[in-house]
């Protein structure tokens, strides 16, 4: 299996299989362009990713590799074991999402930039989980946001959505 090198914004290199890296659609399309221009080449391809920091990239690639492994398991195992496997994947994803809000933010931005739909979905779900059942002030507190709406604007939003509250 071929490998490629993904370079984070601080120059740190990560070697990853093409199969796993192609879960990042941005990387996949970059690869296509590069391969088309270079043709057959034995040197590992280096893809610079100036928008992703080292530790986030590591986390993203961990996801890609694990998902790839799960995908292979899914196709290989009989239908009877699928439910078990799904549980296993969910447990892994739960574990994977045990991150701080700030890490989560970097992760969601990286998933957005690298275009990894499954990771993006997982991250946004995790963010939604942190918002669920909270008041606006609590959401702001949780994400470390400053209130940016004037009281008049808040009142306007409240008024137009008032009926939805009861």
């Amino acid at each position: 299996m071929r490998n490629i090198v993904l370079r984070a914004n601080d120059g740190a290199d990560h070697v990853i299989s093409v199969a796993a890296a192609s879960l990042c659609k941005t990387v996949a399309s970059l690869l296509q362009d590069l391969e088309a221009s270079k043709g057959e080449d034995t040197d590992p391809l280096i893809v610079p990713l100036p928008n992703v920091c080292n530790c986030t990239l590591q986390k993203v690639l961990g996801f890609c590799e694990q998902q790839r492994a799960f995908d292979e398991l899914c196709t290989a195992s009989p239908a009877a074991q699928q439910a078990d496997l799904t549980r296993q994947i969910q447990a892994w994803q739960m574990e994977y999402m045990q991150v701080s809000t700030d890490e989560l933010y970097h992760l969601v931005m990286a998933a957005h930039y690298l275009n990894v739909p499954r990771l993006l979905d997982l991250c946004t779900d995790a963010m939604a989980e942190r918002i669920r059942g909270k008041s606006p002030a609590q959401v702001r507190e949780c994400f470390g946001l400053k209130p940016s709406l004037s009281p008049e604007e808040e009142e306007e939003i409240r008024r137009s959505n008032l009926w939805a509250l009861n």
Partner: peptide
């Protein structure tokens, strides 16, 4: 409808 738009 009620919480999200009030955050920021």
């Amino acid at each position: 409808a009620c919480i999200l738009p009030l955050v920021c």
